[in-house]
């Protein structure tokens, strides 16, 4: 069963002569429990697909469905938000500067009508590898990696089945990136999550995902398995170019794997 479906998705910003088509005719699906990567350079429309799904990008056409149920317009139901959550790119921007970790998680739980807040918060913090001592800290008392862990805890709070990851590690230090990526891999196993992940880093996608879609200028040029990507079996010239460009990374990854 496919968890997420996108069919002929167009997303645009602005009207008339100012109109910018960010995504053009994107079609792909993510099976339940899978991890799907969207790769491409900056401005290729990867993140916009995620934002359209959750209702942050308002103008779109085509078909999007979550668990066979199509979504419409830009308003989403509470049930949708309980099922689909998102982790943002920049942990320095995605946490309210005046709210403690406790306040962020407590409000999220309250909005989803989940009781037993005290124990749930402690459990969530443990799940993302933060101890209870982080509970009453403000974002400015946390490092980038710790902030992203808090953002992940917030996304996990409603117990969703789908998490959208918008370059979750690109704003982090290289040493912290690996920790957060491993955490995401572990959480996916533990909670049977479906991931739709955006990244410009092929090494990250190679580590996290089973299938990837390569995007260029708003269009999906190729959908391939990660094995094919590792073996450089790209059909489209842009994908080959992208793989060549990141050869340093992917090459190392291959040697490490072999």
């Amino acid at each position: 069963m496919s968890r997420l479906e996108f069919e002929g998705l167009n997303v645009w910003f602005g009207d008339g002569p100012d109109r910018v088509d960010a995504v053009k005719g994107a079609t792909f699906e993510v099976p339940s429990g899978a991890s799907f990567g969207l790769v491409g350079e900056s401005g290729s429309g990867k993140s916009t697909i995620l934002r359209a799904l959750v209702g942050l990008a308002r103008h779109w056409s085509g078909r999007m469905a979550v668990a066979e149920a199509p979504v419409t317009g830009f308003k989403r139901s509470k049930a949708f938000y309980k099922d689909v959550q998102m982790v943002f790119q920049d942990p320095y921007a995605s946490l309210h500067p005046r709210q403690t970790v406790d306040a962020v998680l407590a409000e999220t739980l309250k909005l989803h009508g989940i009781g037993d807040v005290e124990n749930r918060i402690e459990q969530l913090l443990l799940d993302v590898g933060l101890g209870p001592k982080f509970r009453f800290r403000y974002p400015h008392q946390l490092s980038g990696g710790q902030r992203q862990r808090v953002a992940i805890a917030r996304a996990l709070a409603p117990e969703p089945s789908v998490i959208l990851l918008d370059e979750p590690t690109s704003a982090l230090d290289v040493s912290v990136q690996a920790e957060v990526l491993n955490l995401l891999v572990d959480l996916r196993k533990a909670h049977q999550l479906t991931y739709l992940m955006v990244s410009h880093d092929l090494a990250v996608v190679g580590h996290m995902c089973e299938r990837i879609a390569v995007m260029q200028a708003g269009e999906i040029v190729e959908i391939m398995s990660v094995e094919d990507m590792r073996e450089m079996k790209a059909a489209h010239p842009y994908t080959r170019q992208l793989l060549q460009a990141s050869l340093g990374y992917v090459g190392e990854e291959m040697h490490g794997g072999a």
Partner: peptide, 13 residues
Amino acid sequence: NSDYISAIRLQGA
């Protein structure tokens, strides 16, 4: 338009 407002909107606020 900041991410933390988007984030709370994604909780259905």
